[in-house]
């Protein structure tokens, strides 16, 4: 019988379509894996941002990846807000991948709501400088904000803390 660990390993192959190196596991959206019977799997995922249009794609990719496995006949993916996603759920590996992909990782918030002051000091993923400024808290996707680095004079994006 297939184990939860094997399923999570397989899910590392499923990437966020908007950040193609980051897996759904490292993104922290997989909140539960159940194996109700020998050949079936029920995965529960939680949306990053409520209006995220990549959700449907991720959902389908998860189902397809799991059903490719010879041990699994059918996989179901349930979307639920019962476990609330927060950017703190991005794994250490995920943060590393974000940085390598040119995004500043989000600040760790704990149970706090984001404050405008902390958004001002994102670390530039290109040169490492902290002399940066927030240009727009809305970016090309719902989960990204636009910053500018005064040291290397480049615009960069941050994965928004939420």
């Amino acid at each position: 019988m297939i184990t939860k660990e094997e399923i999570l390993t397989a899910l590392h192959d499923v990437k966020d379509p908007e950040i193609p190196k980051l897996s759904v596991v490292d993104l922290g959206v997989i909140t539960n894996v159940e194996i109700p019977s020998d050949n079936t799997v029920l995965v529960t995922m939680t949306p990053t941002f409520a209006g995220c249009p990549a959700l449907t794609v991720m959902k389908e990719d998860i189902k397809n990846r799991l059903e490719e496995m010879p041990e699994i006949d059918s996989a179901e993916v349930k979307v639920s807000f019962d476990t609330k996603w927060s950017s703190d759920m991005i794994s250490e590996e995920g943060r590393k991948i974000l940085k390598e992909s040119g995004f500043a990782p989000p600040h760790v918030l704990g149970n706090e709501l984001v404050q405008i002051d902390i958004l001002k000091d994102a670390e530039c993923p290109l040169c490492g400088s902290k002399d940066t400024e927030l240009r727009n808290s809305f970016g090309p996707t719902l989960c990204r904000a636009i910053h500018y680095c005064n040291s290397c004079r480049q615009a960069f994006e941050q994965f928004k803390p939420v």
């Binding site: 209006g51 249009p53 970016g139 090309p140 636009i146």
Partner: peptide
């Protein structure tokens, strides 16, 4: 441009809430 993006993003957020 920034305001165009901001209002478009907030529109997307709001539709997400309505859907939920």
């Amino acid at each position: 441009l920034e305001e165009d993006i901001a209002f478009s993003s907030m529109a997307q957020d709001k539709l997400g809430y309505a859907q939920a």
